[in-house]
Write a protein that binds this DNA or RNA. Structure first.
Length: 766
DNA sequence: GGGTTGCCCGTTTTT
DNA sequence: CGGGCAACCC
């Protein structure tokens, strides 16, 4: 896949139109509504397009690009269009091609990172790199940081390398160079450690002629700041800049854009503050909230006409998101005023997570039996752990499903290994690739041999690969390493003439790498070999290793192959940008959603982001949204009692229906605050909190953590007699009265007239 | 150098 | 409960 065009094309003569052509004749403008059209035609000066879910933002972006080109405001290569994901970039390119043909391929269209790479490859030496610098993946980054920490005698058990790396990455997101990290950020022990190692990590990257993802944004900024002539080149070039998903940009991206837009000021950012769900990886909602402050002459256009969902779904989503404080404000309106309101959002509770999953599975199965396609439906969860329950339920029900996310093709061990072989063939200096494969398959190269090699490499200032020849090695290790080196060299020679898949096949077979998996008996081994075969297929599309590596470094998903009729299960985060006829939103429980950690660590802001996540989830649905929650959930092997999410309470009553006889969920909230709820701490024992007896703080202090319930003896079971005559509520049977109590076993006469024996833990006080 | 055990930790994830 | 990983042992 090409990320974007490298060449500036010869201006096409065939596409010429007279500059004074009446814009009304652009046929691609006709399907636009007035606001969308305004966003397209307002080409000059900074523009913020607040584009709610399902309001046609991609259409606006592509049409705007086409409009600028067709109106001859700029050549295609004078337009910069940036997205976050390759998927979005590809989609945009495809749509643009449909509108204006091959001129689409001359637009600078790609992800932020891809644009960064392109600029850096050209001016690498100005930031101390050579143009064949390597791009580290997450794995490499962690390994590198781990190495540096260990070298400096840091106990990586005490200081998790990933945590340190995360801090460093957040600094990079803010475009802080090591020396720019403020003293305030360094006050904590972890902060000062991260500060120390940020500098070390950078210099090690430099030594390796490598960059990480953060550098792809950070280094262009450095480049531009220290080379005004280079900046001027790009500033002059990009007459129009378009940015997708602006709410997800971080400070570095904001700065980069600001630098690039300084000359022409034609920057159009499209985004939705209500869909900002990535603050935890550095996204700065403030970029969009303060757009008008940063660009005082900015125009703002709101797209509020939603073409996706029913009025009830939009009503529910709007009502929910209105509980957020930090927003620019915008209300989604159904595009078709007279259209039916559709179904209300269904809210349904279950005893436990298993039942929840099973109910959803049977619903989906019966819908499928009615002839509906599975791909019309999605199950969205907050956390990936939840997917487990659905896997079981769908397998039981015989529903073909696909879990999106999680295991990514390029993150699989065998693919990373194969790619490392290719990296090493491409570039002997890629020490990380060398380390990855030098002893894979096992060649008897142990720590001692490696130490000898790296000592030689340091001394001679050469790569590990080249150091092998000089290192003091003897016996079999000498022999196998020499063989390894010559294998890579002959693969390199082969690569000059052979097709890419052949080269790959050659090196993986000759090295014994494939045989390593073939001889392994584990159940995954077959799959690994299949994955490598799949990699050969991908390789067919590339002319040389360099192109492929560039692609593989910046791309992580090959998920788009789901042509079969499959049900998809994914996290709410992964669902952004997608739409489905029916959407099941599972696990709407306090502590899971909103997630406890989000609130604990980010407070009110964390809660608002969780709410935005809920909003994203709801607005994925075109026809039906079904929200479910479980009263008991097994977390880390323990049964934990859960309350319906406060987000359920926040849904406007007019737009939801419940089937449990419960009119309002609001009654649960005081219970939550007073800790008057049932807490099940293991499979057999139930404790009851008396009203007011346990404050939330106490609860957490005693239990230390929601996930590690308090020991049994801390909470005495309440005297059973007092339960007699109590009004209770049961998720399935509704309201009733306790008529007999025997320990935890209660007889309840439900309002329907039925009398049932129910365990106390399945009831709540009404 | 390789296999086993025991301990820790547990949200979201793109490039 | 279960995955990952480092320490430990052969």
């Amino acid at each position: 896949m090409d990320v974007f065009e490298l060449e500036e094309p010869i201006p096409s003569e065939t596409n010429r139109q007279s500059p004074d052509q009446n814009v009304e004749t652009f046929s691609f403008l006709t399907p636009l509504n007035p606001e969308q059209r305004m966003a397209v035609e307002h080409t000059e000066g900074p523009l913020l397009v607040l584009s709610g879910a399902g309001t046609g933002k991609t259409r606006v972006l592509t049409t705007r690009t086409a409009y600028i080109i067709e109106k001859h405001l700029a050549k295609p290569y004078q337009i910069l269009a940036v997205t976050f994901t390759n998927k979005a970039a590809n989609e945009m390119k495809l749509r643009l091609e449909q509108m204006i043909g091959s001129a689409a391929f001359s637009v600078w269209l790609g992800t932020f990172h891809a644009i960064g790479v392109k600029i850096l490859r050209k001016y690498a030496e100005k930031v101390g790199l050579t143009s064949d610098f390597a791009i580290l993946n997450t794995d490499d980054q962690v390994r590198l940081m781990k190495n540096i920490l260990t070298e400096q005698g840091i106990d990586i058990k005490k200081y998790n390398p990933e945590t340190i790396l995360e801090i460093v990455e957040r600094w990079k997101d803010k475009a802080f160079l090591p020396q720019e990290v403020s003293a305030r950020e360094r006050t904590t022990q972890l902060g000062s450690l991260a500060y120390d190692f940020y500098a070390r990590y950078q210099s090690r990257l430099h030594l390796l002629n490598a960059v990480d993802f953060g550098d792809l944004l950070l280094l262009p900024i450095v480049l531009f700041r220290s080379n005004p002539d280079v900046l001027e080149e790009y500033q002059s070039k990009f007459r129009y800049i378009l940015v997708d998903e602006y709410q997800d940009t971080n400070v570095a991206q904001y700065l980069l854009l600001r630098l690039l837009a300084q000359k022409w000021h034609n920057i159009c950012c499209v985004g939705d503050d209500d869909q900002s769900i990535y603050s935890w990886r550095g996204a700065e909602v403030d970029n969009i909230l303060s757009f008008q402050k940063f660009y005082p002459d900015a125009a703002v256009i709101r797209l509020e006409k939603n073409y996706r969902s029913t009025a009830h779904i939009l009503g529910a989503a709007s009502g929910l998101i209105s509980h957020n404080e930090a927003r620019l404000g915008k209300t989604l309106k159904p595009a078709h005023e007279k259209a039916e309101k559709g179904y209300k959002v269904l809210v349904k509770g279950f005893w436990n997570g298993m039942q929840e999953a099973e109910w959803i599975a049977t619903q989906i199965e019966s819908s499928r039996k009615r002839g509906n396609s599975l791909s019309e439906t999605a199950v969205l969860v907050r956390a990936t752990v939840q997917t487990r329950l659905f896997e079981d339920a769908f397998r039981k029900e015989g529903i073909p499903y696909k879990i999106i996310g999680g295991f990514k093709f390029y993150e699989r061990e065998e693919i990373k290994d194969a790619v490392a072989y290719l990296r090493l063939i491409l570039n002997s200096n890629d020490d990380l690739a060398f380390l990855r494969v030098v002893n894979k398959p096992k060649r008897g190269v142990g720590t001692k041999a490696l130490e000898a090699i790296s000592a030689t490499a340091r001394e001679k200032k050469i790569s590990l690969f080249d150091a092998v020849a000089w290192a003091p090695l003897k016996g079999t290790v000498r022999q196998t390493l020499d063989d390894f080196i010559s294998l890579i060299k002959s693969a390199r020679q082969k690569a000059e003439t052979a097709l890419l898949p052949e080269t790959a096949r050659f090196v993986l077979e000759e090295s014994g790498y494939l045989r390593m998996w073939e001889s392994e008996k584990s159940p995954e081994a077959d799959g690994r070999i299949e994955n490598i075969e799949e990699l050969y297929n991908v390789l067919h599309e590339y002319e040389n290793i360099r192109d492929f590596i560039e692609y593989a470094s910046l791309v992580t998903d090959t998920d788009d192959v789901a042509d079969e009729d499959q049900l998809v299960v994914m996290t709410l985060h992964a669902s952004k940008g997608l739409e489905f006829q029916n959407v099941y939103l599972a696990g709407w429980e306090e502590e899971l959603f909103p997630h406890k950690k989000a609130i604990d660590e980010q407070g009110a802001e964390g809660l608002e982001e969780e709410r935005r996540l809920a909003y994203v989830g709801l607005t994925r649905a075109k026809d039906r949204a079904i929200i479910t929650y479980a009263n008991n959930r097994k977390i880390y092997g323990h049964w934990v009692n859960a309350l319906p999410s406060r987000f359920i309470d926040e849904l406007p009553r007019d737009h939801i229906e419940t089937d449990s006889g419960r009119k309002s969920f609001a009654s649960l909230q005081p219970a939550w605050q007073n800790k008057q709820f049932y807490f099940k701490n293991n499979d057999d024992e139930t404790s009851i909190f008396d009203k007011g007896q346990w404050k939330r703080e106490n609860f957490h202090k005693e239990s230390d953590d929601f996930y590690n319930p308090p020991s049994v003896k801390v909470y005495q079971t309440k005297e059973t007699g007092s339960r007699l005559g109590k009004r209770v509520h049961h998720e399935i049977f509704g309201f009733g009265t306790v008529i007999h109590a025997e320990g935890e076993r209660l007889d309840v006469r439900f309002d329907s007239g039925e009398i049932k024996k129910i365990m106390a833990r399945f009831l709540e006080e009404a």
